[in-house]
Design a protein around this nucleic acid. Structure first.
Lengths: 294, 294
DNA sequence: TTTCTAAATCGGTTTTATCGATTGATTTAA
DNA sequence: TTAAATCAATCGATAAAACCGATTTAGAAA
């Protein structure tokens, strides 16, 4: 039994005339006759009484039609659901975001949701390592994160923008007013840094190591919001991408002197995975917003 | 899109392995691969992510599966309903019965319903002409009626039993005690007869015409039960098949002398119409009961 | 590093849907 | 009543599609 036969049967039932049904389906009458006969043989019932040149539905035919029409409708529903998905009329995207990029996400989120209100967007904030693990487990559609290299073969990397790494300090501290600061100067300050899973921390460790300096780390913490509160006290400082604190008014970001003191924000996704149309559209919006801001 | 593809897709979804799914369905892996690809092309989505040698369901795949499984289940329901119909687990038969045969119907009805409790039986009492019209309109599965000839080409006739035509009178009347009565004697009596649509009336008219006699018809009525009540008064008599009054204790049936004074009870059905299994079984029971009683 | 294995692809074969023509019978029109 | 039209069934042939085994490609396991 195939949907084709069901389609033929239901049309014949509707028109109660094999020739008309065949014409309506753009097939020959003999095809329709044969396919319905096959269905009858398979079901071991007669679906139609053939009376002279006319047809009448049998009890079996009536009974079968109830199920047949539902089967066909469900299949059509499936087809239409795929259409909706492709037309951005339904679906869901799941985005992993690191802290420093949240302010760039918001405008894209607003624009996307306004344009495609039927698409559900789930945003998961997290530290880089966790987010990439979720990406590998197909739990995320993409990750927004800072990255220094595009070194994982199975990932797609799409550049968004660069943000300078800055020395972040409180407005209360004495360091306000400096136009730039060196790593040597930072190495003498009490620092509160993100915990080990943060890509920012990896970056910080790398630049200090490269410069043969040791930072004076007083605090390591895995919550950026609390980290910022600690810096607000004026007793500790930190090093973060400028975008991380661009909207925090009690904090001051001082550019760090030296080369390679910028980090690139990227859209990172899995290569082998089918790119949902909604994901593609969202990323396009992200890039559009980024090019506008630069 | 065909149910075949849906079956393949759902098995692949279940096992998350094309090769195993193919084996499970007794087809080759390449067939499964190609058919799923065809489905994906038609739906314009990827249903599976191919990650190395493994497969994972996409969002589209998950969404589609919800509809697909229902479509397949409804089709299977239709198939199973046909099985039930053939196994006498469901269905309905509609029987048209003339008055004189009702006492033979009851035992068959009881036996059938005991044996096949899930089959609905609808019994329609009526006069012959009405019942045959309904039969022609496919509103009845068959008719139980007396018949003299098998003269309609598009009907099937199955003989059940013969019943003598009798002069029916009240126990109160003076005619009780006669072993037989002639048409001449009957012609002198005040008669209450069934109305024109009854085949019994046609039979009575015929035998009187053939004998060149005119019955003294005082009353014509189209309700047999009332007719019998009228006869019970003792003021009028009637002519009916013996079976019509075999279970009425206030009435006495006197055999009518002469040849051709019997009528045959038959099962009459349409030739062009698919005979339901339930109908066939019911008729077999009717015939079995009849051969037992004779 | 080698071997195994799973999905994709290829080219050929088998099966099935489909077609147009014809048959048989009924219905309609003249 | 006859002739013509028409409708479902059937037939034989063809086109299309499902299917197969072999091979390729690449990932996973040993």
């Amino acid at each position: 039994m195939e949907l084709r036969q069901i389609r033929y049967f239901l049309k014949a039932k509707e028109l109660l005339n094999f020739t008309e049904a065949a014409n309506s389906l753009f097939i020959s009458q003999s095809t329709l006759s044969q396919q319905i006969k096959q269905l009858e043989i398979e079901l071991d019932v007669l679906l139609f009484n053939r009376i002279g040149k006319r047809i009448a539905l049998t009890e079996a035919g009536e009974m079968f039609a109830e199920h047949a029409v539902q089967s066909l409708n469900k299949a059509n529903d499936g087809f239409l659901a795929m259409k909706d998905l492709n037309n951005l009329k339904t679906g869901k995207i799941i985005i992993g975001v690191t802290y420093g990029i949240r302010s760039f996400l918001t405008p894209a989120l607003i624009e996307f949701s306004k344009k495609y209100p039927d698409i559900q967007v789930q945003v998961i904030f997290g530290i880089s390592d966790e987010l990439f693990e979720k990406l590998n487990q197909l739990e995320l559609d993409f990750v927004l994160s800072f990255r220094e290299s595009m070194d994982e073969e199975h990932f797609n990397y799409t550049y968004l923008f660069s943000s300078p790494m800055t020395f972040v300090t409180s407005d209360k501290s004495l360091i306000e007013g400096k136009e730039t600061i060196t790593l040597e100067e930072i190495a003498k300050m009490p620092l509160a840094l993100p915990a080990k899973g943060f890509s920012t921390t990896k970056f910080i460790n790398k630049i200090f190591t490269t410069s043969k300096l040791s930072p004076k780390i007083s605090i390591e913490i895995n919550d950026i919001q609390i980290l910022l509160d600690i810096v607000k006290t004026g007793n500790w400082h930190t090093v973060l991408a400028q975008t991380t604190v661009s909207d925090v008014k009690e904090l001051h970001a001082v550019p760090i002197a030296g080369e390679s003191m910028t980090r690139s924000a990227m859209i990172i996704s899995l290569k082998d995975v089918y790119e949902k149309k909604a994901v593609k559209v969202f990323c396009d919006i992200l890039q559009k917003i980024n090019s506008k801001e630069s």
